[in-house]
Amino acid sequence: MASQQQAAGRAPDTTEAASAPVLEADGLVKRFGDREALRGVSFGAQRGEVVAITGPNGAGKTTLLSILAGIERADAGAVSRSPREVGWVPQDPALYRKLTVAENLALFARLERLDDPHAAVERMLDQTGLRDRGDDQVGELSGGNRQRVNIAIGLLAAPEALLLDEPSAALDPRQRERLWEFILALSAAGTTVVFSTHNVQEAERYAGRLVVLADGERLFWGSSAELESVVADAGDTGDGVPGSRDFEAAFVTFLHQRGH
């Protein structure tokens, strides 16, 4: 597990300077009428770290990400960064299908009021590996490439933290693999990545640490190994199968242990 984590998302740095979170949520509360969607959720992500926000459907993953992105306002609590300081990548590509890849990038670079929009477009075409598709209309791209452009737009302003909402939900396994290579490369270059997913295996495989939510409550904050330890310490090694190392089973057991 540890080696897998090394290959994937970076583990948090332990030095004092590096341990200052790039992005921090503190006691976030969100209510929709009588329903409490988030109940005092807190976590912090460090430079270059990959953090997964996971949990069952309706747990509050998208709400938490929306508050971090500045789309929703929290009823209580605080986020350390303003929306303009973090990149946000919605689940469905937010792109104009009639415009080319380069035109989409240029448009958002100008709307971001970047000093040199042209240079930003060139940088993103290189970074996404879509230089040869730069003049193609986005509507003609595959789902995976569209998602790359989607992420590239989130990265145009070179934010220190990038928020991804279910980034691989609509992709096939091959596209998913390529997308994660791209995201991990960003992480390796120092960008903090926070992504929401209901795919537990994806969270285990690519994230250094996980925020597990259920009914708006943070049930767990730590690495996947730590979560497995918690389950094992409780005397149940996962899905009622003693000795099982399957993380998904451990995750389900963890939720069961906490009444979910």
Partner: peptide
């Protein structure tokens, strides 16, 4: 429909 609305009003416009 292009999912661009939230991206735009998130500080761009």
């Amino acid at each position: 429909e292009e999912n661009a609305f939230l991206r735009l009003v998130r500080g761009l416009v």
